[in-house]
Each structure stands twice: as structure tokens, then as C-alpha cells.
């Protein structure tokens, strides 16, 4: 390596290799991603661009370096499949027998299934009780997709209706930080993308699901220690304005007590930046089921969800001209 051109060529070769690997190929693979469809019968396009206020909030997040302490990516260490019954069927005894067979396994094929609480302790009594109770209910758990599919087939053959639910698992998910791992599609419309590398504060990928109240976020930004006991987050009073109450208190004013309360005649209102940031935070969610990150979203209608689901489904299906009553 005595010559300049040789060293230069070595440098060029090495750097262009890593450039192709981590600049060019990611651009080709994920830099040209388009919107995709979610899984399931109520399929929608995903993701949708953040509404304007949330988009501005993203810039406030960037300018104040929130990504220094908060990550926005959730990991997953595995996926389990839960066999659930949606309909008990007419021949309950054969369904019970099939369930118990699945749990026992055979001599050369030990069982791949673990009973879930409705079936514990495993036995025909527990199985019968589970079948009588309110369905749908997850009864078995496995991590083997082939076994799960076979079990569903077996149970369907006994006139019951079974399906398997895909449930991602991992420490982040157990902590309630998400329902599935985050994937490239979740960040499609963000600029800049700030997945963060530190968890000095909790992960924010799904904070819009956990804490959907903008008023909570505003109060938390103003005085974190007031809202979260033991928080180490610094307050952001510069995102708020302490001003004299004119005529009537503003509906946006923060409700503060104790030593944080403003002096009489004054109120603390959020600036547009704070409002935008709160809107951004409540827009953060990454729980749509995708092909690359499968997840079963509970779709069985219950009394509480029927109408809301009906209206959302009605909204998403293509409009058909209403039938006009004819005489």
C-alpha cells in the first residue's frame, strides 16, 4: 500500500460497497414504499398522512429534540397463535373431545398446544364450561402455524366454528407499548423520521392509543412531575404562555393547582406549538395489522361495538345508490 491511487481505490471500493448496501438498497426497498392495505375484512389503506396540526407537531418534536430521550419503535420477539372458538356448534361433545385430543397429542407427535385459562384445568368439565360461556374465546395457544391450521380444521369439522388469532409477543408489547412491532410502513409520511435510540422516557410509537387525551399531554408538557409521579422529564414552560385573563378564562387554559397555579387573574394557555405537539402525540399509533406484521384485530361484534363498527364499515365500503322506495 505504498501508493496514493491504491489507497484511494481501496477506500473507494470499501465505501462504495457499504454505500450500495446501506444507502442504495434501502432506498430501493423501503424508500419507494407506497401505502399498503391492512389485513382483514375491514381493509383500509395504511398509513394515512398525518393531519396538518399533527404534521406541525412533528416539527415541534424535532426542534425540541424529543427524540433524545424517547424512542418511537417497538420490537417483537415472537408470535403466538391462539385457537379460539367463535361458535360452539351443535355437536358440543365432539368439539370437547376434539379439544382434549389436541391437548393430549399422540405418542409420536407430542402436543404443540398449551391450554389458556378458560380451559384450565384441562378436562371435559372445563371444556364444557368454556363452550357454554360467551364466545368468541381463545382456548389454546401454540407457536406452530401448521399445527394451528390443522387444529382449526379439526374443530370446524365438529360443526363448531374455530379460527386462530395471531398475537405478537415481546417485552415492549407486554409493557403495553404496542400491539405489534413497528415496520417501515409506519413511518412512510414522516419527515424527519426519528425512531430514537434512547429510552430515558417511555417509547412513543403507540402513545396515541395509550393516552389519547390532548389535555393530558398539555398538562404533562407543562409540569411532568404533576402528572406522572417520579418522572425525570424536564418541564417545557416555554411552550406555554402565562397571560392575563380577559373577560372569561380560556377553555384551553391548563387546570393547575398548588404552587404551579398562576397568580390570580392569570391563566396558562398552550401556544400553537404545544397544541400541535399534543396533536402529534395523540396521532401516534402503529397497530394496524399488515402483511409484514400480522396481527389479529378483534373483529367479532359485541353489543358495545356493533354500531360503531357498522358505521365505520358503512363508511369504508363503496357507496351504492340507496334504493328508492317505489310505489
Amino acid at each position: 500500500m505504498n501508493y496514493g491511487p491504491l489507497i484511494f481505490l481501496a477506500t473507494f471500493f470499501a465505501l462504495s460497497g457499504s454505500w450500495c448496501g446501506f444507502v442504495l438498497t434501502p432506498q430501493l426497498q423501503i424508500g419507494r414504499l407506497q401505502q399498503t392495505n391492512t389485513l382483514g375484512t375491514a381493509s383500509t389503506t395504511y398509513p394515512v398522512a398525518r393531519p396538518g396540526l399533527a404534521g406541525q407537531g412533528l416539527q415541534v418534536y424535532r426542534a425540541n429534540g424529543c427524540a433524545c430521550c424517547h424512542s418511537q419503535q417497538v420490537g417483537q420477539t415472537g408470535t403466538i397463535l391462539e385457537i379460539s372458538l367463535t361458535d360452539a356448534g351443535t355437536n358440543q361433545s365432539s368439539t370437547i373431545a376434539a379439544l382434549l385430543d389436541l391437548l393430549k397429542g399422540t405418542d409420536d407427535h407430542p402436543t404443540a398446544f398449551v391450554p389458556l385459562p378458560p380451559l384450565e384445568p384441562a378436562g371435559s368439565n372445563a371444556a364444557a364450561a368454556a363452550l357454554q360461556s360467551k364466545l368468541p374465546k381463545a382456548l389454546l395457544r401454540t407457536s406452530d402455524p401448521a399445527a394451528a391450521k390443522a387444529a382449526v380444521k379439526t374443530l370446524n369439522a365438529t360443526s363448531a366454528k374455530a379460527e386462530f388469532w395471531v398475537v405478537p409477543v415481546g417485552p415492549d408489547l407486554s409493557r403495553g407499548w404496542g400491539k405489534r412491532r413497528t415496520v417501515a410502513e409506519d413511518y412512510l409520511f414522516d419527515f424527519p423520521v426519528m425512531p430514537g435510540s434512547q429510552r430515558v422516557g417511555p417509547d412513543l410509537a403507540n402513545v396515541g392509543l395509550r393516552l389519547p387525551d390532548t389535555k393530558w399531554h398539555l398538562l404533562h408538557l407543562y409540569a411532568p412531575q404533576l402528572v406522572v409521579k417520579g418522572s425525570t422529564m424536564p418541564p417545557y414552560p416555554f411552550l406555554f404562555e402565562k397571560r392575563k385573563i380577559e373577560r372569561r378564562p380560556s377553555p384551553e387554559a391548563l387546570v393547575l393547582t398548588g404552587h404551579l397555579a398562576p397568580p390570580a387573574g392569570y391563566e396558562v394557555v398552550p401556544t400553537p406549538g404545544a397544541v400541535a405537539l399534543a396533536a402529534y402525540l395523540t396521532s401516534l399509533r402503529a397497530d394496524a395489522p399488515l402483511f409484514v406484521a400480522p396481527l389479529t384485530v378483534a373483529s367479532a361484534p359485541t353489543a358495545a361495538t356493533t354500531n360503531s363498527q357498522a358505521s365505520s364499515l358503512a363508511a369504508s365500503t363503496n357507496a351504492v345508490p340507496a334504493q328508492t322506495p317505489a310505489k
Binding site: 446501506f22 434501502p26 432506498q27 423501503i30 414504499l33 419527515f191 424527519p192 423520521v193 426519528m194
Partner: peptide, 23 residues
């Protein structure tokens, strides 16, 4: 120059930004 071009001047889309930033 690669990082500044592809992240700030003519930004790439989505997660590709983060990959280039990490690189």
C-alpha cells in the same frame, strides 16, 4: 455529502432516512 443530500436536500422517503442516518 451523501447524508446531507439524501436526508436534507432531497430527502428520501420514510425509514430509508433513518437507515442512511445510522450509516
Amino acid at each position: 455529502s451523501t447524508a446531507n443530500l439524501l436526508l436534507l436536500a432531497f430527502p428520501v422517503r420514510g425509514m430509508a432516512q433513518a437507515v442512511i442516518a445510522w450509516w
